[in-house]
């Protein structure tokens, strides 16, 4: 998740901050801070301080190996007009629709996934970590995003950039249109 936000700040700080304000991003940004390695990775202590049992925290600091968050849910079906089947993986697994920040850790990805998927409530950890009861997002005090937050935080950066670019183009275009028409008014 840190990487995801870092990319947003580097490539479109204004866009990202506008989205953060709209979607109540302060809470998410507040996740970063103490309990990190020099490389910016979360430590076991970071998660333990947030109420995660040590056995689960040891799993949460591992590199994420899952499939990521599909912005278009995998159950999504094409309209009958287009055949009615699943969305082709070339689209649903593309960087525009698959949220899987590079270098993200299990805990960060699970929390991100918990926030943006209203049907995700928790999961198991591998046996070696000794927690056979799994983890619950609610029990850990994690919060679900509202619809706007799901749209924003569930979107991969390339999609945000494209949408932001389109929005920016629209704003610039609107500005140019207003300028033009203002000019026309002045010329009259």
């Amino acid at each position: 998740m840190d990487r995801q936000f870092g990319i947003g700040l580097n490539q479109g700080e204004l866009l990202f901050d506008v989205g953060s304000v709209l979607a109540g991003g302060a809470a998410l940004k507040g996740l970063s801070g103490a309990g990190k390695t020099a490389g910016g990775l979360k430590t076991v202590e970071h998660y333990v301080a947030r109420g995660v049992p040590p056995s689960t925290a040891a799993y949460f600091v591992q590199p994420y190996t899952g499939m990521g968050h599909h912005y278009l849910p995998r159950r999504t079906r094409l309209p009958e007009l287009l055949g009615g089947g699943p969305i082709p993986p070339a689209i649903s697994d593309s960087p525009f629709f698959l949220l899987k920040p590079k270098g993200i850790q299990m805990g960060d990805m699970y929390e991100l996934h918990y926030r943006v998927d209203p049907h995700f409530n928790g999961g198991r950890v591998p046996q070696r970590f000794g927690n056979v009861r799994g983890w619950s997002g609610k029990a850990l005090g994690w919060e679900k995003e509202d619809a706007l937050g799901r749209i924003w935080y569930g979107a991969p950066d390339p999609l945000k950039m494209t949408a932001g670019g389109a929005l920016g183009t629209g704003v610039v275009g609107l500005g140019a249109w207003v300028d033009d028409h203002d000019g026309e008014e002045k010329r009259r």
Partner: peptide, 9 residues
């Protein structure tokens, strides 16, 4: 379809 979702089950 049965759809596998990794950590989400």
């Amino acid at each position: 379809e049965l759809i596998y979702l990794h950590e989400r089950g």
